[in-house]
């Protein structure tokens, strides 16, 4: 059984939205479009997380080397699912028919919002458990995306948040995240998550 948390809207980081739009030097028209879309999107969003805390009993049962490495310093993990709801999906699907430009902006807003929600949740967990790892999700490194199903089940995500999986393990609402966070035994610095990625030319890459 998992606990559901509702969050207030986290502060909007417009720079992140522009980064997800792949638009590093926006002109005024783009900026005002982002503003317009934000005021349309924000009222339709909700911020909910469902999570459980589990001890890691058998490390040898974890098949993903990447995940194992990520949790090397932890004996307990927080498993969570987060979503900003279907409102953003409705806007994206509406505007991809009416105005693809706006669809791109809503897409970026949705990504920024769900990441901001995950950050807010992890901040909350830091208060509770002091030292935690970065988020690690199915599909990262060698962790099989199929484990998505397990995470959805142990976080009660379908019941608590309405998150469903399709046959390709994609989540709806699309702006949802499932992840594992290790509760660390000792305090160590977490790295920039982009650092270990090999895709050097990626337009979304965070500055190292």
């Amino acid at each position: 059984m998992a606990e559901k948390l509702i969050f207030d809207a986290p502060l909007v980081d417009k720079k992140e939205i522009l980064r997800y739009m792949g638009c590093k030097t926006p002109d005024d028209a783009v900026l005002s479009l982002v503003e317009e879309c934000l005021s349309e999107a924000l009222p339709s969003l909700s911020y909910a997380v469902s999570y459980s805390v589990y001890p890691i009993k058998y490390k040898k049962d974890i098949s993903s080397q990447g995940l194992l490495k990520h949790l090397s310093d932890s004996d307990e993990i927080i498993i969570f699912a987060a979503t900003i709801g279907v409102g953003i999906d409705r806007l994206i699907s509406k505007y991809s028919r009416i105005s693809p430009t706006k669809a791109v902006v809503f897409q970026a807003i949705g990504t920024e919002r769900i990441e901001a929600l995950c950050d807010a949740f992890c901040d909350e967990m830091k208060k509770k458990y002091k030292c935690i790892t970065n988020r690690f999700s199915p599909g990262y490194s060698d962790w099989d995306i199929k484990d998505q199903k397990l995470i959805i089940s142990v976080t009660d995500a379908t019941k608590n948040l309405g998150i469903c999986l399709n046959d390709s393990y994609l989540m709806s609402p699309s702006k949802s995240v499932t992840a594992v966070v290790g509760i660390k035994n000792t305090e160590t610095e977490e790295k920039n998550p982009c650092e270990s990625c090999e895709n050097a030319g990626c337009i979304y890459r965070r500055e190292l």
Binding site: M21, G22, C23, P26, A29, V30, V105
Partner: peptide, 11 residues
Amino acid sequence: IYLPQLLMSAE
């Protein structure tokens, strides 16, 4: 120019 600007012109 970036994608959003390209799209605004296309629309």
